[in-house]
């Protein structure tokens, strides 16, 4: 073993080249393993859009359906409920739905809906993921105080939302409830999970 006449530069270059190409190889080899942890075809099929018939949903009533394993609330709001919405503005964290991640562009309005009377909202509290329950009764009878304007109440940590799923001030939840992508296939048939004409979600 002798080190006479060793071209150190060449040796360094070849070492770096081997390490470089080898690292590329390791990254390529690791990719399938990382990707295999994504939702599988089964999970994606279970998460496919669901079509809901709302023709039987009466005024002032709520329907709970599952989409991607999460509860989706569909509420047929009365005129009285809709009228109260604008009065809530000073009590709310984000009354004008400024946080874009919480709703698709077509729900960026007072009703947070495509059609004012029909609310489609994800029943997942933005605090820690509990399912808020409906508290549509107004006033003291609701048990939430005499000035309660009706909405949703989360039992886990006491977060409150109004009838558009907008979060009230001074509760643990930071954001308005999520509005999922949805579309009307007919007047009474809603597709949840897709808002494009093409079926792919």
């Amino acid at each position: 073993m002798s080190e006479d006449g060793v071209d150190r530069g060449k040796r360094r270059f070849l070492t770096a080249l081997t390490v470089g190409v080898g690292t590329v190889g390791v990254v390529f080899a690791a990719t399938p393993f990382v990707l295999s942890m994504n939702p599988s075809a089964r999970a994606r099929a279970a998460g496919a859009p669901v079509d809901i018939d709302i023709s039987k949903l009466e005024l002032g009533q709520m329907l709970v359906v599952a989409w991607r394993g999460k509860p989706v609330y569909i509420v047929n709001r009365t005129q009285a409920m809709l009228d109260r919405l604008s009065k809530n503005t000073p009590l709310l964290v984000d009354p004008f739905s400024k946080v874009k991640s919480q709703q698709p562009p077509y729900a960026d309005n007072l009703y947070r809906a495509r059609k004012p009377e029909i609310l489609v909202v994800l029943g997942v509290c933005t605090h820690l993921g509990c399912a808020p329950s409906k508290a549509f009764t107004v006033g003291a009878a609701s048990g939430l105080g005499a000035d309660w304007p009706g909405g949703f109440f989360c039992h886990c940590h006491g977060s409150k939302y109004d009838m558009s799923g907008r979060v009230f001030k001074n509760v643990p939840a930071p954001l308005n409830l999520d509005i999922p992508p949805y579309m009307y296939l007919t007047d009474t048939l809603i597709r949840i999970g897709s808002d494009k004409k093409k079926g792919a979600a």
Binding site: D7, R11, T15, T18, V21
Partner: peptide, 19 residues
């Protein structure tokens, strides 16, 4: 890819084994 890497690996081995 492996064939390319093999060439690099052989060059590296030859360089060191000159010693």
């Amino acid at each position: 890819f492996l064939a390319v890497f093999l060439v690099v690996a052989i060059l590296l081995k030859k360089e060191y084994w000159k010693d």
